[in-house]
C-alpha cells in the first residue's frame, strides 16, 4: 500500500485494519488521522493492498500554542 506525506510504499499481506497498520508503523492512533481518498477512516476500517493512504500527524508542538 502507498503512504503519502512522506511518500512511501509499504508491503502488506492481505486486508488489514487501521490499528494493524499503525501498530506496524509504531504510531499511536491518538496522534494521527488516517485518510483515504480525502475521507477519514475510523479504527475498524479494513484496508486493501491498492489503497493510497495518508497518515497525518495531529500533535503540534509550539510553546506559544496556536501560532505554532
Amino acid at each position: 500500500m502507498r503512504l503519502r506525506n512522506p511518500d512511501r510504499i509499504i508491503e502488506v499481506s492481505g486486508p488489514r485494519t487501521v490499528p494493524d497498520l499503525l501498530r506496524s508503523l509504531e504510531i499511536v492512533p491518538e496522534a494521527v488521522l488516517v485518510i483515504r481518498d480525502a475521507t477519514l477512516l475510523t479504527r475498524d476500517e479494513e484496508l486493501e493492498e491498492h489503497d493510497e493512504l495518508e497518515v497525518r500527524p495531529v500533535l503540534s508542538g509550539g510553546a506559544g500554542g496556536p501560532g505554532s
Binding site: V28, P29, E30, A31, L59, G61, G62
Partner: peptide, 24 residues
C-alpha cells in the same frame, strides 16, 4: 499541515506524545 521549522527540541511535543500513549 507542516510544523514551524523552529519547533525542534520543544518539550511540549514530547509531553503530548507521552500523554497520547496514556490516552490510548
Amino acid at each position: 499541515v507542516e510544523e514551524c521549522p523552529m519547533v525542534e527540541g520543544n518539550v511540549q511535543h514530547k509531553y503530548k506524545e507521552a500523554i497520547a500513549m496514556l490516552e490510548e
